[in-house]
Design a protein around this nucleic acid. Structure first.
Length: 842
DNA sequence: CTCTCCCT
């Protein structure tokens, strides 16, 4: 039977005659993985060179190679071969080599020109793994530099093709039909509010009654799968008594097969995302999609990972539904509404946008690139994550200060582990603890070989890693062990052996015995930023050298250790992070090995509780304070600590604002408001606080306590902020006093913000019609007219109106109360005075 | 109520 892809092969071969890049968009079932490489073998531009095809998974890579070989009547390793970690089948005859992603990145580093390779094919590119994105950027760099004739073919199922075609210099886009059956999609009228396991189990009961064929249900994680399984077993018996099979990555192989292979009766598979792309399940006609998945998110601020449960993307929902249409027409039950469907993000963010980029930063440095933006990216790696990765690489000795790769860095880049572990390995080999380091690196790189669900409580230990090393060694000696997983032990052991070969560690260096002290040191080389010191309260709270607080999990084997390395840490939802695994680090070892990073320096800081500046000599490693004793400090240090303390703590109100200082400030604020273009300084709270060190600093010489700082007269330093010409203009524009008709000089109150008011006895203002002003007539002064006893009688900004009107009322009332003072009928002609009538006559 | 998935 002809595959749909056959129709586009002629177009593909002709496009590649004229273009060096092509994008193929073909849905699942089109047959692109096996047909495209073979169709290109005889292309004239290939000139007998080989083709490399990138596959995201090991199983897919070997299957594709075997299938293509069988089409040619050969076995894998002839014309068609493959290379995956631990397994390689290629020969001199091999022209098509299928590789997994890490293999290609590594090969690009050792053979940057890709000698002997005429074409690179990226299969399943829509998955946007970090490796595929990086490899594409590097291949494009090769193509644009020295190998213009290198062909790049990007194959993708659901990816929007235009952006990647644009990246490849407007590559032609060739679209193929897929071959799958229609799937009927059923949404709920409204989003379910029940917990996922309940909602899914209910949907399964319905599907069992109204559909036929095996059922595949997608849940976010193991916990939900377990509970859903329970709900199905409890309560009413299930229609057609099906086989219920959980399916997730941690499941032993035999149980995974039970879920994948067809059964003798109807089957219900409860799966994580593993069934979305990695595994195909036989016999599925019905999909039930919870709409959620669990993913790991890298948090650039903390350098830590976090597991989150999130709604899936629209692309993911399409992919999951498609799993019901491989045998014939199928049905997909979506446990969300059509309205919610329209709110789904179109596609999952590419891995490069959400991952730890330390490995990418090292690969780029090894490639000779210090500025990632000089390469072409479909999604550029986020600058903050990349920068954080670079800083870590400097700490790990892989990069120098200029971001150039070091000799150590080159050796690290050749090792197939995270740069942290690669650094540990290079250090360990020089110290004769290479074999143990290989075990530790392998354990850190693979699934946890101690199953938390095993039910066996871990024994108390100085190191969660030592516990695992001992489980591994127990497995090697064929011993029975509790809580360990044999399949993972086998993978870890193979990985450790592989590392030993790469590091030229022979068999003679067997691991004789591991001790907590050595394990702790190894991990400290990998995680110097996660060396952790217990907080003063002696509980399970720690401070990491990187500066974050963390809580040691109750499930860790480690207890009561003052200093440790936190090698598995999860970012907390809020507040402290969680240390899942830790190993003791003796203070002695730490001091000896990390003496370069331990610095002694003065710390002069504001002690809020004491309200004063404290200075001491501290011994620090990153954020950790190892020791501290009182010491002297320079005047500058004290001053800036004091200023910072005031700014962060009590603020301006802690200073003593004399009436004179307050009035001066208010006058300047008035002038600044009325004459904004004259260069008046900004004396608002915010501005004064922001520049506190500059204007007040010089007055604070020798001051350590807040109480002493509060005694400083603020007027002179504030005056110092004005040049002499503005000081003079201030006296004219915003005078301190006004002379009133009685001849008195009365002070003007400018409030805090510069609103002038004048409080004056009524009798002193007789005859004055015009309301007084400041700022050369631009700002009226609000007049508070006072009784002879100084009590407010009237507030007015219109004196003339007052004399002509309200005055008569005031007069009647006041005459009786203050008979010795003048209350004339005609205020216009009365003589203004501050005295009583008696004084006036004399 | 800890633990989606893949890979050198």
């Amino acid at each position: 039977m002809l595959l749909p892809i056959e129709d586009i092969l002629p177009q593909l071969t002709s496009s590649l005659q004229t273009h060096n890049s092509v994008v193929i968009q073909a849905p699942p079932g089109a047959g692109k993985t096996t047909r495209v490489p073979l169709a290109l073998l005889d292309a004239p531009w290939l000139r007998g060179k080989g083709i490399v095809m990138l596959e995201p998974r090991r199983l897919a890579a070997t299957n594709a190679a075997r299938w293509m070989a069988s089409i040619l009547g050969e076995e894998a390793g002839g014309t068609v071969g493959y290379t995956i970690r631990f397994d390689r089948k290629v020969s001199r005859q091999t022209r098509v080599e299928v590789v997994t992603e890490g293999v290609l990145t590594r090969r690009l580093q050792t053979d940057p020109l890709l000698e002997g390779v005429g074409a690179v094919i990226f299969d399943e590119f829509h998955e946007r793994s970090i490796h595929a994105d990086l490899a594409l950027a590097l291949c494009r760099d090769v193509q644009q530099g020295l190998r213009e004739e290198l062909r790049i073919i990007v194959m993708s199922a659901t990816l929007e093709a235009a952006p990647v075609a644009g990246l490849l210099g407007d590559a032609p886009i060739i679209t193929s039909e897929g071959r799958s059956f229609s799937v009927e999609i059923r949404h709920l009228p409204e989003d379910s509010r029940d917990p996922l396991p309940i909602a899914v189990s209910r949907a399964i009961r319905t599907a069992l009654a109204v559909t036929e064929g095996d059922i595949l249900a997608f849940l976010p994680g193991v916990g939900e799968i377990r509970r859903c399984h329970q709900f199905l077993q409890e309560g009413e018996a299930l229609h057609s008594a099906p086989l219920i099979a959980p399916l997730y990555g941690d499941l032993p192989f035999a149980e995974q097969e039970r879920a994948i292979l067809s059964a003798d009766r109807r089957k219900v598979v409860l799966a994580t995302n593993i069934a979305e792309t990695s595994l195909t399940i036989e016999g599925v006609r019905v999909v039930i999609d919870s709409g959620f998945c669990r993913r790991l998110r890298f948090d650039p601020g903390s350098g830590l990972d976090r597991l989150v449960t999130e709604r899936i993307s629209a692309a993911s929902a399409t992919q999951r539904a498609g799993r019901a249409g491989r045998l014939g027409p199928g049905t997909c039950f979506r446990l969300w509404s059509e309205h919610t469907q329209r709110t789904l993000i179109p596609a999952d963010p590419p891995e490069i946008a959400t991952s730890d980029l330390t490995p990418v930063a090292l690969d780029l440095a090894a490639w000779g690139v210090t500025d990632a933006s000089t390469l072409s990216w479909l999604t550029p790696p986020p600058k903050s994550s990349l920068e954080e990765g670079r800083q870590l690489l400097v700490q790990l000795e892989a990069l120098d200060r200029h971001g150039m790769i070091t000799e150590v860095g080159r050796r690290m880049a050749e090792l197939p582990v995270h740069p942290r572990l690669a650094h540990m390995l290079t250090r360990a080999v020089g110290r004769g603890v290479g074999p143990l380091a290989c075990d530790v690196a392998a354990i850190m790189s693979e699934r946890d070989l101690v199953k938390a669900s095993g039910g066996t409580a871990l024994e108390r230990s100085e190191s969660d890693m030592l516990v695992r090393v001992e489980v591994l060694n127990g497995w090697r000696k064929g011993r029975r062990f509790a809580g360990g997983d044999a399949a993972t032990c086998r993978t870890v052991d193979r990985s450790a052996q592989h590392l030993r070969r790469l590091l030229n560690i022979g068999k003679e260096h067997a691991v004789v015995g591991a001790d907590a002290e050595t394990v702790g040191l190894l991990l400290a080389w990998a995680y110097p930023d996660r060396i952790a010191l217990r907080r003063g309260d002696g509980g399970r709270r720690y401070l990491l050298a990187g500066g974050r607080g963390a809580l040691l999990s109750e499930r860790s084997s480690v207890h009561d250790e003052p200093l440790l390395v936190a090698h598995v840490v999860e970012r907390g939802e809020r507040g402290d992070d969680l240390i899942r695994q830790a190993s003791v680090l003796t203070l002695e070892t730490f001091r000896r090995e990390f003496s370069d990073g331990i610095v002694t320096g003065r710390n002069v800081f504001w002690d809020e509780r004491e309200g004063r500046v404290v200075s001491c000599e501290e011994e620090r490693f990153g954020a950790l304070v190892l020791g501290s004793r009182p010491s002297a400090a320079t005047a500058d240090e004290v001053r800036s600590a004091l200023v910072e303390g005031i700014v962060r703590g009590p603020g301006l109100s802690a200073l003593s604002w004399s009436t004179a200082a307050r009035r001066f400030r208010a006058r300047v604020r008035l002038m600044a408001r009325v004459f904004p273009d004259e260069g008046w300084p900004n004396l608002s709270d915010e501005a004064l606080l922001a520049t506190l060190g500059e204007w007040l600093g010089p007055q604070l010489d020798g001051v350590r306590r807040l109480a002493d700082a509060a005694a400083v007269d603020l007027l002179p330093p504030l005056q110092g902020l004005l040049p002499w010409n503005l000081l003079r203009r201030l006296d004219e524009g915003a005078p301190t006093h006004l002379v009133v008709p009685s001849g008195s000089r009365v002070p003007i109150d400018y409030g805090d913000d510069g609103t002038p008011t004048l409080a004056v006895k009524l009798q002193e203002m007789f005859g004055l019609a015009e309301t007084p002003t400041v700022a050369w007539g631009r700002v009226p002064v609000v007049v508070h007219l006072l009784s002879p006893a100084g009590r407010p009688l009237q507030v007015t900004a219109d004196l003339r109106g007052f004399w002509n009107g309200a005055y008569q009322e005031v007069k009647k009332e006041m005459r009786g109360r203050y008979p010795k003072h003048p209350w004339p009928d005609d205020p216009w002609t009365a003589i203004p005075t501050r005295r009583t009538k008696g004084h006036e006559r004399k």
